[in-house]
Nucleic acid binder design. Structure first.
Lengths: 203, 203, 203, 203
DNA sequence: GATGAATGAGGTTTCATTCAT
DNA sequence: AATGAATGAAACCTCATTCAT
């Protein structure tokens, strides 16, 4: 956790630092990211950095917290709360849409998350041992869908949960390569769901 | 490219070095991987390392080449050559199976590829600007499938190519988390294809 | 010398600062002692510290002055003034006793003095070039004792002055290791003097 | 322990490094001593330093080992082995003489030992919890002397052990202030022993 | 006077690469 | 070719001191 000194800073300055950090961490894996660069970018002295944060990792963890928090803020909480009022495919669409919107509006945060995912050691230090929640979430959604009768009972929720996660990653890939595609956003989502729906729906 | 001195080495020694390198790069991102460790592991002197390779990156690039080569060796070349004799879903199954087998038999190579994928700068240096070939390959396959009449014409090959890639990644994830799942291999592949087939087949 | 601002402070606050400083300097050699810790302990801001003292050394010097002053306050000034009324061994006993009482009642001050004694550079800056006064004092006492006829004339006052000093240090060592010995205080002093008296008295 | 690389160095270079280290540690307390200075003095690169030693503390511990070893080499091992052939005061003289000779010939090592003695934390790390062996040694010698009948039974060996240690320290002080005294060496030792003998001998 | 954030020089340590044998 | 010591450019982090309010 950042020290109090950080939170006592004017919002504007806090943001400058966070922005600088995101810039650095988005372009370099943790160990390659340099405190000096962040400080310089943010227009503060290196010494100040260490008055705000315990060390480089401290800032990094904090950033990850923000990322998670922000990501969660994108999902329609109303739908989550009343998920029994919605049909499986409506829920799925919502999940994909929220992931999509988040990625679209926070493109620089994406690579940070991805890099972390590939540094097992660091990942564990930050998120502990807990597993890829995404796949698990989809798995539960699928089980629920099967109970509802919307999903083909031949589908194995565990395997398919993983697959839906993989496709979600692909979706964010589109965003990261933005500009290279002339497809409009809705069309992408619709395509995915069209495909998934045909693949999963009970026949 | 490694220097001639490297290729003049007895095969056994070459292999020892490659194995050591794989070990190190599989557990550490490029910048974290240490030449010293590789040399030690391989039982050679650090100085020798630099007589075989230009520098750390040189070895890394070479390794990547091997990886790609090896990966390609897993796909059934007969099928590729005579792909017009096969039906779309047969081809797809073959691709997934080869990816699966490769991952299963070369588990240490997987994380290397993943880490590289997250170091954009390095990636570019090694593979240049050229795009995710996997997605493109699937895209072509899909287009071919549509011509053949096997694939629903409402499917957008570009988008779906990306999705099939994402699912392929998920598949390798299963292997990397091996032991945690009690699913038998064929079942996983079958499930995936069952789902994909329902999702894509012309109705 | 501390600035006026320090002396204008309420006595209570001055003491808090001094106490904090003693705590820090008693547990860390000068260069290891941290201004921040002292300020925090004393409940003042770091900035304030520099309004009271020129710098860290300033406080340290001041502390040393206090230490010396306090130490001197322990010797029976009446005896010093009328030292011709007393016999050599009475005087010696008084000196050892005062050293003993000082150490006993100010245990935290002892290590500060010891540490300083080992940082020649710093020592010189604070006490200048002037020599170990303790040894010199004992030397004079011994010379006086020889004149008096109490001390064996074969004794060399310079050498023996040094030795008496060394034994005084050993005495304070007993205090610093307090609790480890089950000897009662008077017994220690008596032993020492018994030994010294036998060693020195004119035969 | 220094790494093998250090011991593989030509003796001459090893010595240059040790000399440089002694110089630095003799004039600065551990935390104040700078690796850079040692390296520069020794005429090696900083990087080399770390190829020879784990870190600063590693070198320091090694130095301490040398010091102890050297110190022990000064005592007449023949006498120690056959100590029952000697009289208490002969043994004591030998101990003081060896301490004296060591100090005389290795004046720069003395302050290092003294500084360490005052950094409790560091001391513990290097010598563990074990107590001032010097005092204990003297204590045993005294007990032996009492059994022999040479020493006044009224003497408390524990207290007096400490005192003899204190005087030994004073003796080394003479050496460290060398040049300031016009006393010749033997005279100092003789004086001390004359005094001690009178103080301790059974009457 | 009081505060506590801001500063930056300086110290330790790492490691890719070069050099000398 | 083979070796492994030598090098030095970074990088992280600490903390006395100054500054601005």
């Amino acid at each position: 956790m950042p020290k109090d000194t950080f939170f006592n800073l004017p919002k504007e300055k806090q943001e400058r630092i966070i922005e600088a950090a995101i810039d650095e961490f988005a372009t370099h894996p943790f160990h390659q990211a340099r405190v000096t660069v962040i400080a310089e970018q943010a227009g503060i002295a290196v010494g100040s950095f260490y008055q705000y944060f315990e060390d480089k990792k401290d800032l990094y963890k904090y950033l990850m917290g923000l990322l998670v928090e922000k990501k969660l803020s994108y999902i329609n909480s109303d739908m989550v709360k009343n998920k029994d009022k919605y049909d499986f495919f409506q829920l799925l669409r919502e999940v994909y849409l929220s992931g999509f919107r988040f990625a679209k509006e926070n493109p620089r945060l994406l690579p940070i998350g991805l890099m972390l995912a590939n540094d097992k050691e660091l990942y564990r230090e930050i998120f502990g041992e807990y597993e890829d929640q995404s796949a698990e979430f989809f798995q539960q959604l699928l089980e629920y869908g099967q109970v509802q009768g919307a999903i083909d009972p031949a589908i194995n929720p565990k395997i398919m949960g993983k697959m839906l996660t993989g496709m979600l990653y692909s979706l964010t890939d589109f965003i990261m390569e933005d500009g290279k595609f002339d497809l409009d956003d809705m069309k992408i989502i619709d395509q995915m769901l069209y495909f998934i729906e045909n693949g999963l729906r009970k026949k």
